[in-house]
Design a protein around this nucleic acid. Structure first.
Lengths: 343, 343
DNA sequence: TAAAAAAGTTTACGCGCGTAAACTTTTTTA
DNA sequence: TAAAAAAGTTTACGCGCGTAAACTTTTTTA
C-alpha cells in the first residue's frame, strides 16, 4: 500500500499499466472496460490509494453524479428517517446524495435551490415546504434540473410527485374511530404549513358526511414547525374551554398529537380506549416516537419504503431516459392503520 | 436581467468591463478589490446571472470553502438540532456546510470520511460514533484535514474537542434529586454507544460516594441507537422484577428516559414529585421532546449555543491560522438543570 | 483460421478556472 | 504635485480531468 503518492490519473494510469483514457472510462463506469483490464486497474487501486479529483471530473460534465435531497425540516424525525432511506438508495445506485434542510424557512429553501443549481446535480428529490415555498422559484429550478417532489405535493411542480394518500390515512382512522366509539373531531393548526394538512381536513369532512356524522374541526393557534408546542398549547385551550363535542380527537399529525397528549396528561385527562378513560386521541404519520407516547399513539403509518423507493426510482428513470416526462405522474401510497392504546 | 446567457468568467468579465483576473479575485474575496471595481462587478451580477463554476474553482485549490459536518445519528433530534445551528454558523462565515450522518454505523462513518477526503474540505466538525468509531481511520483522516470533534470525545483525536461537561450534568441532577427526595439509582444501556455515557456513570458513582449515599447502577439490555426502545424494554424489566432500591431513577440520557417513562405509564406507575406519585424520573440532555413527555421530564440541558459556537470558532481559527494547534484543546460547557414535573 | 468487432493506445485539445509576471493606470501619501 | 503604493490589465500557463480521432491490438464470430 502507498508505495508512493499518486498525484493524478496520468500517474495512476502509468502504475496500473493501462492508458489514461481507459482508466478514465473505468472510473466513469467500471463495466465499460474488459474484465482483465478492470482487474489490473483494481489491483493497482489496492496498491496505491488514488481517487480521481471530483472537481476535475465534474467541471466539464453537463451533469454530475450528485443527487440533491431537500427536506423542509430535518429536526422532524419523520424527515430525518425518510431522507436516511433515500440517501441509502442513492448510494446503492452509485450516486452521491447531498442532504439539505430548509429548516422551515423560505429563504433557506431558495438558498438551497441556488447552491444546488451550481452543483449541477443529475437530479433532485424535493420535499417542499409547501405553503411557504416560492412556487415560481421551484418551477424555474425544475426546468433546469430533473426534480421529483415527495411528501408534499405542489400542483404541477416538478416532473413527478410521490407521496402518501392523505385520504387513505384519514378514512381509515375516521372509520376505525367511529366504528369503535364516538365519532372524532379533527384538530389541526390554524395555518397548516403544508398541503397535506388541508387534504386531511377535507378527507375528514368528506368521511364524516359519508358516514352521516356531525363533523367538528378545531383549529389551534400557532405558526411554524413547532407542532408539539402548538398541539400542547391548543390542547390546554381546548380542554380548559371545554370546546369538545365528542370524546374522540383525531389530530392532523402525530407531532400535534404528541403535544396534545402532553396537555391531556397535565390536565389529568385520561386518554385511552379502556374503561375509565376520558378521551380517545388518534393521529396520522406514525412518527418514530409515536410508540413511546403516553399512552402509545393510535395512528396511520406512511409506507416509507414504497414512497422513498418510488421517488428514487422515478428520478433515476428520468435521468436514465435523458428526457423529461411529458405527463407529470402522481403516485400515492395508502396508509396502514396502527392501533395502539390511545384510541 | 438575463440579456444573454453568460457561459464563463471570461464572458462575464467582458460584460462587466473588468479583467478576468480581477473578477476571479473578486469571487474569492469581494473585499480584495477596490470599492468602485466591486460595484461594477456587482452591477453586472444584477444584469446577468452568472455564477462561477464551483468545480473549476475547486479543482486547483488545495482546500475548498467546504466544511464537513458529521453526526452519528441524524434521526436523533439532538443531532439534527445542533447540526442546524452549526450549519447556520458556517454559512454566515462564508463557508459551504455539508451534512452527513453515519446512521449509527461504523461502515457509514468510514464512507463519509472517505468522500469528505475527496471533497478537500477546509475543515471538518465531527461528532463521532464513539465506541463504534474506527479510531485509526479518524486519526489518519484528521492528519490530512483540520478536524474538530464535538459532542463525543475520543482521547487525543482531532485538533480539538468541544462538548458538554458530563460531570456538570450528573452532579446537578444527583444533587437536586438527593436533596429533594430519595437518592437516585442510575439507569443506562449495557453497551453505551458513546463515551459520554461512561463519563456520566462515573460521575454518578463519584457524586453518590461524596454524598455518602448508596449507589445503584442498573444496566438494561440493548444494542444500537434505538434508545427509546431500549429504555422501554428495560423499564418493563426493571418494574416487573422490582429491582429498584429507591423511588428515584436517573437515566443516562433523555431518549432512554422517554422509553422508560412510556414503560412506567403502561405499567400504571405514577411518575412525578407530587403526592401520590410512585417514582421520580430525571435524565440528561434536554432533548427537544423532553418538554412533551408525560410527565414533562426533569433534565439537564446542553448549552447548544456555546458548544456549536465554540466548535465552529475553533475550526475557523485553525483554518485561518493555516497551521494545526500543538496542544489539543478540550472545551467543556456546563449543563443547566431544568426542573419539570417528572422529578 | 480469416474476417469482423470490440477494446485499448496514442495524440491532442478543451473545459473554466487560479494565478504568476511584467506592465500600466489609478489612488494615496507626504 | 511628484513619488510611492495599490490596484487593475495583459499575457500566458497549468490544473486534472473528459473525450474525440486515428490507429493498433485483442477478442469474438462464423
Amino acid at each position: 500500500m502507498d508505495e508512493r503518492k499518486i498525484r493524478n490519473m496520468e500517474e495512476f494510469a502509468t502504475v496500473s499499466g493501462i492508458s489514461r483514457p481507459t482508466v478514465s472510462k473505468y472510473f466513469n463506469n467500471p463495466d465499460s472496460v474488459r474484465q482483465t483490464t478492470r482487474q489490473r486497474i483494481e489491483d493497482a487501486l489496492q496498491l496505491y490509494d488514488y481517487r480521481p479529483n471530483i472537481y476535475a471530473m465534474n467541471q466539464n460534465r453537463r451533469l454530475t453524479k450528485n443527487i440533491g435531497i431537500v427536506v423542509p425540516y430535518l429536526a422532524d424525525p419523520f424527515f430525518s428517517e425518510i431522507s436516511r432511506v433515500i440517501e441509502q438508495r442513492c448510494i446503492e445506485a452509485g450516486y452521491a446524495p447531498n442532504l439539505f434542510s430548509a429548516h422551515g424557512q423560505q429563504s433557506q429553501e431558495l438558498d438551497i435551490l441556488d447552491s444546488l443549481r451550481s452543483m449541477k446535480p443529475a437530479g433532485v428529490l424535493l420535499a417542499p415546504l409547501g405553503r411557504q415555498s416560492d412556487r415560481a422559484a421551484i418551477e424555474k429550478f425544475s426546468r433546469d434540473v430533473p426534480t421529483v417532489l415527495f411528501d408534499s405535493n405542489i400542483d404541477g411542480l416538478g416532473d413527478a410527485f410521490v407521496g402518501s394518500d392523505n385520504y387513505s390515512f384519514v378514512s381509515q382512522t375516521v372509520e376505525y374511530l367511529s366504528r369503535t366509539g364516538d365519532p372524532p373531531c379533527f384538530l389541526e393548526g390554524r395555518t397548516p404549513a403544508n398541503p397535506n394538512a388541508n387534504k386531511r381536513r377535507l378527507a375528514y369532512l368528506e368521511m364524516m358526511e359519508r358516514l352521516g356524522l356531525e363533523a367538528q374541526v378545531i383549529k389551534v393557534d400557532g405558526e411554524g414547525w413547532d407542532f408539539e408546542e402548538i398541539g400542547q398549547r391548543g390542547g390546554f385551550k381546548v380542554l380548559d374551554e371545554k370546546v369538545l363535542k365528542t370524546n374522540t380527537v383525531l389530530c392532523s399529525n402525530d407531532r400535534l398529537a404528541i403535544g396534545f397528549l402532553s396537555a391531556c396528561f397535565e390536565r389529568g385527562v385520561k386518554v385511552g380506549r379502556g374503561p375509565g378513560c376520558d378521551l380517545r386521541v388518534a393521529s396520522h404519520d406514525d412518527h418514530p416516537f409515536a410508540r413511546f407516547t403516553c399512552p402509545a399513539l393510535t395512528t396511520a403509518a406512511h409506507d416509507y419504503g414504497s414512497v422513498s423507493g418510488k421517488a428514487v426510482k422515478t428520478l433515476f428513470d428520468i435521468i436514465d431516459e435523458g428526457t423529461r416526462p411529458v405527463d407529470r405522474e402522481e403516485t400515492l401510497y395508502p396508509a396502514r392503520l396502527i392501533v395502539r392504546d390511545s384510541a
